[in-house]
């Protein structure tokens, strides 16, 4: 009983921590892009990274599934623990990590293949389906989760690149969830979308948090306020403030956070 009370009181804080980041530094050659970031990202929670352009929020997001490995000059230091395991450990194969930590990018980037193949690709390479029927099921389930099933169910053979921008982005989200990741990283997923498509994606994010830990980078503070439970404010490579979204937007502790959310810097 006692425990339940605490849970209700502190809310999300008591939830399981997914990512444990300690003293994370990211360098692009000599440029110190991320400085001493300490943050705990919770499971079954939407965490928003906000901050002005070039503050390092995308860089930090990309270091959570080691996408920065693809940039030769990029170097990550410090500990990033996923369920207590260091993701930068020499034993970790980034491919395995990325199956666990999926990613959705700023620009919708469907493969120039059919809608079906876009979704089926991940499950195929990870061996999630034993036969065609199972694969069909995964595809349908993922497209439903991506809130795009009704729009595309009659044209699964049509190319994914032929969809509208908002549909493409939802297709990309469906593709990301098809591999059953535990964490979903989203790098400004709505920046290329119109308000209607944005609303659809936001609704989708809200549904996703029931099963996943979602980390979203966004330029829109309204979006952060709408979809996230936790918000982290980055400025010039520093994590300035990390707290419940309500706290950040109603009662920011740091002067810089307040300036940013009220529009004085950014």
């Amino acid at each position: 009983m006692m425990k339940d009370n605490i849970d209700t009181k502190v809310g999300v804080d008591a939830m399981e921590t997914k990512f444990n980041c300690r003293d994370v530094q990211v360098y692009y050659a000599d440029n110190h892009a991320i400085k001493d970031v300490n943050v705990d990202i919770l499971d079954k929670t939407v965490t928003a990274f906000i901050g002005p352009s070039g503050c390092g929020k995308s860089t930090f997001l990309r270091s959570l599934n080691r996408m920065n490995d693809t940039i030769p000059i990029c170097r990550v230091e410090g500990d990033i623990l996923l369920d207590g395991e260091d993701i930068n450990d020499a034993k970790v194969d980034p491919v395995q990590l990325r199956a666990k930590v999926g990613m959705v990018f700023q620009k919708p980037n469907p493969f120039p293949k059919s809608i079906y193949d876009n979704i089926a690709y991940g499950p195929r390479i990870h061996g999630l389906a034993r036969n065609k029927a199972e694969l069909d099921e995964i595809v349908e389930k993922s497209l439903r989760r991506g809130a795009i099933w009704d729009e595309v169910k009659d044209r699964l053979d049509a190319p994914g690149t032929g969809l509208s921008g908002g549909q493409q982005q939802r297709l990309c989200i469906a593709r990301a969830v098809a591999t059953e990741p535990e964490v979903l990283l989203m790098d400004e997923p709505c920046s290329a979308l119109d308000p209607i498509a944005t609303a659809q994606v936001e609704e989708l994010i809200d549904e996703l948090k029931a099963n996943y830990s979602v980390v979203i980078v966004t330029h829109s503070m309204q979006q952060a306020a709408r979809v996230s439970q936790k918000t982290a404010f980055f400025h010039l490579g520093n994590l300035v403030e990390y707290d419940d979204t309500n706290e950040i937007f109603t009662n920011p502790r740091d002067q810089r956070t307040e300036s940013y959310i009220t529009g004085r810097i950014g």
Partner: peptide, 27 residues
């Protein structure tokens, strides 16, 4: 070949070789 295609494949956990042979090379 646009880097977004490579990122898309890597982002869903394709290996480098799968990325190249399944996506980059056909394009």
């Amino acid at each position: 070949v646009p880097p977004s295609i490579r990122e898309a494949a890597l982002g869903i956990g394709a290996s480098k070789m799968q990325t190249v042979f399944h996506h980059v090379l056909p394009l």
